[in-house]
Amino acid sequence: MINCKYCETDKPIDDFYQSSIRKDGKSGNCKECIRARVRANRAAKIDYYREFDRNRANLPHRVKARKEYQQTERGKVAAAKAKEAHYRRYPHRSAARNAVNNAVRDGRLHKPSQCESCNDEVALHGHHCDYNKPMDVMWLCDPCHKQWHRDNTPIYCDELKLA
C-alpha cells in the first residue's frame, strides 16, 4: 500500500503510475487524482488545448499517417461507418445535399466553373449557408470553403422537427 499525497489515502501499488523519481518506482499521486487534475486543467484552459490539438493534428507526419490509414481496409470501414452515422444524425443536411446534386444533374441548378470567393477555376464544393434553403448554394473551392467555416457558422435547421 502507498499513500497518495493528493487525496491522502492508502491505495494498492497498482493504483499508481510508474515514476523514475521515487525510490519505490511509483508516482506520489494515485491515477484517479492525476486524471481528475488533468481533466480540471483541460476544462480550465479549453481554448488553449483546442488550438493545440488543431495544430498537432496538422503536423505533416500525422497528416501522412491519417492518409495511409484511410487506404487500409480498417480505415475504409471506419470512414463508411462515420459517413453512415452522419447521415442518420443529420438527415435534413443530407436531404439538402442530395437536392443540390440532383438539381445539378438534371440541369435545374447551374454549377459555375469558378469559385465565388477567389475566382479560381478548380473543383468546387456546394456550400449551404442556411440548410433551411437547400437550393441556395455558394460554390467555393476547398481552401475558400474551409476559410468560410473558420470565419462563419452555418444556419442549421432544427433536425428533430424536420426529420
Rank of each mutant, 00 (worst) to 15 (best):
N55T: 10
P60D: 00
D53N: 06
R97C: 14
E121G: 10
P134S: 01
F52E: 11
R66I: 03
H127Y: 10
A82P: 08
Q70Y: 12
A96W: 05
P91K: 02
W139P: 02
S117I: 08
P134T: 00
H127P: 04
S117V: 09
H125E: 15
D106M: 01
C115I: 02
A95R: 14
K45F: 07
R89F: 05
H92R: 07
V77H: 06
E121I: 08
A96Q: 04
A85M: 05
A57I: 06
V122I: 13
Y69L: 02
R93M: 12
S113P: 00
H127Q: 10
D142W: 11
K45Q: 11
W139M: 00
R93P: 06
Q71R: 13
H125F: 14
H110M: 05
F52Q: 13
P60W: 00
P134F: 04
C144P: 03
H145S: 14
V100F: 09
L124V: 07
V100H: 04
M138E: 15
Y90G: 13
L59E: 02
T72V: 01
N98H: 08
E51C: 05
C118Y: 03
A36N: 03
R108D: 12
P91Y: 02
K45L: 09
H127A: 08
A79G: 06
K67S: 12
A99P: 06
R88W: 05
